[in-house]
Amino acid sequence: MGDYFSRYFTRIGFSVLASIIGALFALPLIWFLFAPFNARAELGLAIPDPFTLSNFVTVFNNAFAIRGLWNSLLHSVGGVILVGIGATLAAYALSRSNLPGKRAVTYTLLLFSSVVSGSAAMVPIFLIINSMGLIDTHFAVILVFAGGLLPTAMFILRDFIDGIPRSYEESAMVAGASPVQSFFDVALPVIRPGVVVIVVWSFVNIWGSFLIPFILLRSSDKMPAAVAIYSFYSEAGTPIVTLLAAYALLYSLPVIGLYLFVSWRFGFRFFGGIKA
């Protein structure tokens, strides 16, 4: 009996603790949903009274900020296409070919991506882009993002492809398919869940990035949202909470939309159930 009660209270205690932790994490999200619709929003949590869209009206009148969202989309989609295609083809080759030293190549790439790229490499990257005459172009931003994300994307995807039996492509080739056919008909559909992960991951990475476009771009009409969000700070550097909240909500919508779209269209899952 005593044992029963002690287990009972352990469960209650555990649930209470979990609820408190959950509430702590939920508070900022609730603020994030309420503040944009509150004309007098502050850093404290408050239910909008009255419920208003006036913050959004002001934000939409800020051409620089709205243009920023479009530029972010441009950078993200461009980068995702480069990373998606490049990483898929490279990872497939690294996984399936018998190239000598391919293991060393993979690990060197990973090392370069995590150590060399990032803020530490900003000066050389700036110099390279400058000497290529690409400063203040979208292309430069997309290129640098793709270069920084590709190695990790390749590494993740190669591991994923390694886990897929070669017999899929082998059976296709024996059945009469060329290597290219077997890649597009059989291998690519099977590795698609891995590619989707890469696409979402690199989209989110580029979407939220500040430093690279800030350094490589000059004209304000090319700046992405991560930079444009600073137009909602006063000259003294204090945030205008109402507008910032509204813009932040707009800024996060594409990422949420992407997640929803991917999980509806592809699902973050594998084609399961085939025993090897």
């Binding site: 296709a172 099977v190 159930g273 025993k275």
Partner: peptide, 27 residues
């Protein structure tokens, strides 16, 4: 392999998970 006019049955069957049986057999 594609130029050898051969058929092969694999130990793990290697059925394409994204195709139904008709498309698998007709591939």
């Amino acid at each position: 392999p594609k130029d050898r006019q051969i058929s092969m049955v694999f130990q793990d069957y290697a059925l394409y998970p994204h195709m139904n049986l008709a498309d698998n057999i007709a591939y």
